[in-house]
Amino acid sequence: MSTPIYNTNQIQKRVDDYISQFKEGYFSPLSLMARLTEEVGELAREVNHYHGEKPKKATEEERTVEEELGDIIFVLSCFANSLDLDLSEAFEISMNKIEIRDKNRWTPKNK
Results as ranks from 00 to 15, higher is better:
M1N: 15
M1E: 13
S2I: 10
P4L: 01
P4C: 03
T8L: 13
N9T: 12
N9W: 06
D16K: 14
D16I: 01
Y18D: 08
Y18T: 01
I19A: 03
I19R: 02
F27G: 05
S28A: 11
S31E: 13
S31R: 11
L32R: 14
A34E: 09
E38K: 04
E38Y: 08
E39C: 02
V40H: 10
G41D: 03
G41F: 03
G41Y: 03
E42H: 01
L43F: 12
L43I: 06
A44V: 08
A44E: 10
R45A: 05
E46D: 00
V47R: 04
V47Y: 11
N48H: 01
N48E: 12
H49W: 03
Y50C: 09
Y50K: 11
Y50R: 13
K56Y: 01
A58Y: 12
T59Q: 14
V65I: 15
L69Q: 14
G70R: 06
D71H: 12
I72S: 11
F74R: 15
F74P: 04
S77V: 00
C78G: 10
A80P: 06
N81C: 00
L87N: 02
A90L: 14
E92G: 08
E92N: 07
S94T: 05
S94G: 07
I98Q: 07
R101S: 14
K103C: 03
W106E: 15
W106A: 11
T107H: 14
T107Y: 15
T107M: 15
T107L: 12
P108F: 01
K109W: 08
